[in-house]
Amino acid sequence: MVSLLRFGILATLVTSSGGVLADLKPVADDELSGVVAQAGLTVDYSGQTTLSQFKFENAGAYQVDGITMGGAGVTQAGFSEGYGVNFDDVRVTFDIDSDGVLDVVWQPGISDKIDWGFRADDVTLESSGAKKTALFTNLEAWGFLKEIRRRVNPPAADGSSQGVSTYSEFTIENLTAGASANTVGIEGGYVKGMEPAGFAVLDSTFRPLSAAQSGIGRDTVTLEVHNFAADIGMSNLSIGGVGLGAVTLDNVRVTDTAITLNH
């Protein structure tokens, strides 16, 4: 109620031209000291998003149909584990520090991790001639999110942007895709931390590069992967319905890698 009352008071003040300004008193230094660093915004979030079709179109197209994003319960495997269908228990904080740096942090509220889920009916590629290739069908994934920290960095001394840095800890507990004669099938896919019950780590920065910085003679963007660490695998991979067996990649590390768009 306090928030709405404050809004009401603010609206009243804004709309009262030449309002009463008598009896204003200066705030003492010791009173001001208690005010510093008390601002910032917290949002406790619960929700779900559906999308009947996502289509990225260049000359051809990449298309995903029947998307649901929410809690682990949007997948069959996650639902059977007892998870709900909403992406919830999420606490998002927004802070702007004294240097004008914006930090947006996603963390769990009550529990120690947030369950998430994603499912899609079909994933296809389409040529400019409208020929389609099915990649996946009944694609489902669920896992946990421990935190995402996004920082909009301050500009460099010359005023150029230093982009956005993202640090995240997460897992994919179970990734599946239906096996058929036309698609890639996946059973028991996972991306986890290197320690038991640990989280995979991705630390990266996405930033624009000027022509002078890029080395390709024009403006572009780059993704700098400072650190990616995870165990990756699946219990069975099949192509066209034919099983190829298990895949296991232990202790995968990617560091000091820059991917620069050049088109």
């Binding site: 928030s3 008390q38 601002a39 910032g40 915004l41 917290t42 949002v43 406790d44 979030y45 619960s46 929700g47 779900q48 998003t49 559906t50 999308l51 009947s52 079709q53 996502f54 289509k55 990225f56 179109e57 260049n58 904080t93 624009p208 590069l209 890029s214 024009r218 403006d219 572009t220 963007v221 768009l261 088109h263």
Partner: peptide
């Protein structure tokens, strides 16, 4: 970055439900 488009994205029947509690900290 550059001057050429990387393409277009089309989202059809986007539907969002969300429950948020907002406060200062």
């Amino acid at each position: 970055g550059g001057t050429e488009s990387i393409g277009n994205v089309y989202m059809t029947d986007l539907a969002v439900r969300a429950d948020m509690v907002i406060y200062g900290h």
